[in-house]
Amino acid sequence: MDTSKRRLLGQIAAITAGAVFIPLAEADGDSTPTKGKRYGMLIDLRRCVGCQACTVACTIENQPPLGQFRTTVNQYEVTEGDNSAFMMLPRLCNHCENPPCIPVCPTGATFQRQDGIVVVNNDWCVGCGYCVQACPYDARFLNHETNTADKCTFCAHRLDAGLLPACVETCVGEARIIGDLNDPDSRISQLLTQHRNDIKVLRPSMGTQPRVFYLGMNQAFAERIRGEAPVRTLMTASGKELHHGH
């Protein structure tokens, strides 16, 4: 028997044996995380006007302390030749597929839910700040009031109740789209497929596999910004200005 025939027969045998397990795999399907819900967010930068409504809505919903944000919109001026334009970049936790904040946690207080949302159990967090250091997006902070790690949760409490996250709900341009990445019929999956070649994530070089995707983002914003820093103001917790400058 020649080798190609032998390989063909081997493949048929493998398929036949595999068929035995098909019903079992289907029955287990819903309990495996890969087939359950996997939340992700697509931010259509072409629709973002930088109104900060999402920042305000998030602050009202989640009540972070003064000067600390779970989400905010960075604003940039981009100049090429004689042309200038404004660029708005909403920022939040990327709920990465490979989140670097989780393995470093010495107490297991931060973890990823089955639906991919990265959360912090702030009754268990010791406030060591290791996860804040490990996040390449500055998406985490130590909450000055709870003295524990804090971050965007995709408003998991709202999603669990069948509501949209506060930032998505309030976005005037409908720039933020949240949905199930594992459902090919969800709006986010369809948009990701439709714009496959224009989708970008932040800092892909870090290998974190973010699940917040950006549509309409220039490559110059994908990695760390090489540009001019804004005028910064150093303030005390009570809002008193200590220092001002670049």
Partner: peptide, 16 residues
Amino acid sequence: MDIKELLTPDFAITWL
């Protein structure tokens, strides 16, 4: 391409 940051938050240090 020149990028100028206009509005970005500052982050306080975490390890004191």
